[in-house]
């Protein structure tokens, strides 16, 4: 990873006629929110505003990444994130290739390093990687010449999700600093949680985490987030509440007795959300389990911005792709 952390303005000619900022991220990879400064996060969010405009045009395409090859390398099943990246890449005119590696090469005995070295032999510019092992993207960023974008690594980080969540909050509230954001659900196994806590605390939000103690990561209060098992306390006066998916296998793993009891104690309902601010945003990274972590009434209600999150995901990923790979002057500076 590049040691530089400050964005730089290169005075690059603008792609097409869109008002895309001319700054760049001075780094090869985006492996986590942990590595980003608040300034870099702001740069990505600002760039995404311009990118979102492109998606509203009748011709939703700019030549910013023309001639660049982006490989979406998914070792774990994904529909939403992979589709979002692919649309983002196509709207920037990149050549894209999807590889659903799942575990096939692993089953055949090939190591992750060998798989990726083989792909890299074909000179891609960026690899968008999802993997079930925490740290897999850090490992690849050290052994790859191409830039690595983390599309979710194990239970570690999902930085583009946190960035699109932040974009959605900022779009509605015009700020992040000072907002109370409650995140509820399976905190222990969630990469969305880790990226969001890092991002929201860096940007000055008041972060509240809520779930059963069996699903709380040990020592997490050191992040500066508040930890509680009282959903009422977490939601009280919140500007945004974000639910995390509860997987059936967690019940089988003994983290809580039944999905029914989970919903009764932690499920987000219109009644519970009444403790939040009247203009609260109800968020979910998907895929949702209706009737487990969130009621359908709330998910489909007026406070819900869940589909806005999906739409914004394309803009945020366009911004990240552009900031990492866009323009020849980037390579000269790197």
């Amino acid at each position: 990873m590049s040691p530089e952390t400050t964005p730089t303005t290169t005075g690059a000619p603008q792609a097409d006629d869109s008002p895309i900022p001319t700054s760049r991220l001075r780094r090869k990879d985006l492996v986590g929110i942990a590595e980003l400064t608040a300034e870099e996060i702001s740069l990505i969010l600002d760039t995404a505003v311009a990118m979102k405009e492109i998606s509203s045009r009748p011709i939703k395409k700019v030549p910013a990444l023309r001639g660049k090859t982006v490989v979406n390398l998914f070792f774990e099943a994904s529909t939403r994130t992979r589709t979002s990246f692919e649309i983002a890449e196509k709207r920037l005119s990149a050549d894209t290739l999807n590889i659903a590696a799942s575990t096939s090469s692993v089953v055949k005995g090939e190591t992750l390093a060998d798989t990726v070295h083989n792909i890299e032999a074909m000179s891609p510019d960026l690899l968008v990687v999802r993997h079930s092992s925490s740290g897999a993207c850090h490992f690849l960023s050290r052994i790859c010449r191409a830039g690595v974008i983390n599309a979710g690594d194990g239970m570690h980080e999902h930085p583009t999700q946190a960035l699109l969540d932040a974009f959605t909050i900022r779009e509605r509230k015009q700020r992040i600093a000072g907002l109370k954001v409650a995140i509820c659900g399976d905190l222990l196994h969630s990469r969305v949680l880790r990226s969001n806590v890092l991002l929201l605390t860096k940007m000055g939000a008041d972060v509240w985490l809520c779930g059963p103690p069996t699903l709380m990561p040990v020592g997490f209060e050191r992040t500066g987030a508040h930890m509680t098992s009282s959903i009422d306390e977490a939601v009280e006066g919140a500007d945004a509440v974000m639910m995390l998916r509860i997987q059936l296998e967690r019940m089988l793993g003994g983290f809580f007795p039944t999905l029914r009891e989970y919903f009764n104690v932690f499920g987000m309902t219109p009644e519970r959300v009444r403790r939040a601010k009247p203009d609260v945003l109800v968020m979910h990274p998907g895929p949702m389990n209706r009737g487990v972590e969130i009621s359908s009434e709330l998910a489909d209600g007026p406070s819900s911005v869940i589909l806005d999150q999906v739409a914004n995901g394309v803009a945020v990923r366009m911004a990240i792709l552009y900031l990492l790979a866009g323009g020849a002057e980037h390579e000269a500076a790197a």
Partner: peptide
């Protein structure tokens, strides 16, 4: 080791 570091890195802890 189960603790803050493993929690942040998303590594399963050994208490």
């Amino acid at each position: 080791h189960e603790g803050f570091v493993a929690s942040m890195l998303g590594l399963r802890g050994i208490p």
